[in-house]
Structure formats: structure tokens, C-alpha cells
Amino acid sequence: MSDYDLIDADDVDTPGDEWEELDVSDDESDRIARVQDREFQEFRKRIKDADQFKVEASVFDDATLGALYKLVQDGHIRAFGGPLSTGKEANVYLAASDGDDVAVKIYRINASDFRAMRDYLDGDPRFEGIGSDKKKVVVAWTRKEFANLRRAQAAGVRVPNPIAVQRNVLVMEFLGSDGERAKRLNEVSVENPETAFEVVREYMRRLYRAGLIHGDLSEYNIVVHDDEIYVLDLGQAVTVHHPNSREFLERDCENIAAFFTRQGHDATGEDLLSYVVEPEPEP
């Protein structure tokens, strides 16, 4: 693994985006799903008849197909490919845009584990008033991930570039080549664990100073792409003002320190935590 250059953080927003409004009202994709026009019907049949989607009924409901149809109409998706990864809450698919591959993350409305989500939702003012409405929770969660990716980018952290969001569907930069996703840290041989650790801890500090805590950071959602380190899966990321933020941050630090210790670099969760929360020097 080669040395890694960090992204400059020249334009970081005010820490904490917990007051950002997340609009969960019906949008164009919901209306498309209700209006059964011929083009949408043909699009729905084409997707549902495709071999790679025949077992994905829990993912491709009509409203999700409406969201995909809208993203196609808007030019964000030109052709849809097979799955890159599958999970309890979401599947990620390869798709083609104009000239580039993109990753399309689809959160399940009916199959999402809302009990697992609850620790991250409770205490976040953006989710007040949503209650237990599954559709509203998942739509807000998806929009939250889009917003968190933009905030991480502004803080100088390498993440997949967020391209578009529609209902429970997020389109973002594809990290990989020739249709194969980038390797996670747990899947590669870390040639220089000290340098890689320094990059990850700096990313954690920049996220913290931008008001965000990943909340589920480990070697399973950090990838190597073009000899650079990227952080994935910011859907559950919380602001520093979340009531459980300290607990989440301490857990992230323990996970990262434990991984790099196994790679031969001496690290502790306590030291990493101290580095991450160190106050920014006065200008």
C-alpha cells in the first residue's frame, strides 16, 4: 500500500447539521409510481423481468421503481447492472451514467431493520415527527446519507461523490474498476499500516471538526481505490450533538485501533479518541 495524500479542507461548514430539514413528503417518484403511464409500465416490466432482479422483490417495489425511473429521466442512470453488495438495510448496484459507472444504493422500505436504526435516529431533530412510518424513516435516512457525504467531502474526507438522491435511492460515485468494487481494508494487505492509520485518524478528526461522527467505522467500510483511502456508509453518521455521539465515537476509535494493531501498528482507542477530539488550534 502506497502513501496517501489527504484532501485539503479549505471549505468546512459550521459543525453540526442536525437542524437541516429532511423533506419526506411525496415527491415525483411517488407520483410516477401512482400514475401508470405506458413508459413507466415498460420500464417496470424490463426491470422486474431481468434475471438479476427476480429475487429482489423486497427491494424493487413500485415506488422504488418510480424513483429509478425518475433518475433515468434526469440522466443520472443510463443502464442498470447487477449487485455490488447486499445488506440487511440496503443493496448496492452497478449502473452506467453518461461515460461513467455509478453505484446505486437502494434502501429497502419493508425489510429495513428499524430497531438497529433507532439508536441513530433517536435524539436527531431531523427525525422528529416522523414516528414509525417506515417510508418516511427510510426516505429521511437516505437523504441524510446524501447530506453526510457532502459534509464529509467539504471537510476534506475522501468519500464516494454523492450525485443524486430520489426517495430511497442514492446515486454516487462508483469506487472500483471493470465492474469490480474497490477492496475493503480487511480484504487487502496493508503494506504501510502506520501511514494508513494516520490517514484514517485524520479523516475521523476532520469529520468530528465538521460536526459528524461515523458511528459504525471499521475495516469493513473503509476501502482502497486508486491507491487512496475512502470512507463508506455514512447513512448512520450522527452529529456531535447527538445524545449517543460520544459512545459511537469511542466505539469507532476502538474498532480502528484494534484493526491497525492487528496489522502491526501499535494503536489504542484512548489515544485515537484524544487525537480526534483535540480542539482545533486558534487561527
Rank of each mutant, 00 (worst) to 15 (best):
E145A: 03
L170R: 00
N148Q: 08
E194Y: 12
A196G: 01
D178C: 02
R158E: 07
L185Q: 07
R206A: 01
V157K: 02
R181H: 05
N148L: 02
E173R: 07
A196S: 11
S189W: 09
E198G: 13
L121N: 13
L170Q: 02
D133N: 15
V188R: 15
G156S: 09
M172N: 00
F146V: 01
E202C: 11
F174L: 02
E194K: 15
A196I: 00
E145I: 06
N148K: 00
Q166R: 11
L149E: 00
G131L: 09
N192W: 02
K183E: 13
E198D: 14
R151V: 01
R181W: 01
A147K: 10
R201M: 10
K134M: 13
A196K: 01
E145G: 03
K136P: 06
E173A: 09
G131Q: 10
E202T: 15
N161S: 08
R206C: 03
E198C: 07
K135L: 02
Q153T: 06
V169A: 03
E145N: 09
R158L: 08
S132G: 08
R143N: 15
R143W: 07
N192V: 05
R167K: 13
V157C: 07
P162Q: 05
V169N: 04
K136C: 01
D122S: 13
N161R: 14
E198N: 15
T142Y: 01
N161T: 14
D122R: 15
W141D: 07
L149N: 00
R143L: 12
R126N: 11
V200N: 05
T195A: 13
E198Y: 10
E173T: 07
A154C: 02
R201D: 03
E198S: 14
E191C: 08
V169W: 01
V159I: 07
S132T: 15
Y203K: 08
G131N: 11
A155L: 06
N192E: 12
L170C: 00
G131F: 05
A164D: 05
F127R: 06
S177T: 11
F197R: 12
V137G: 07
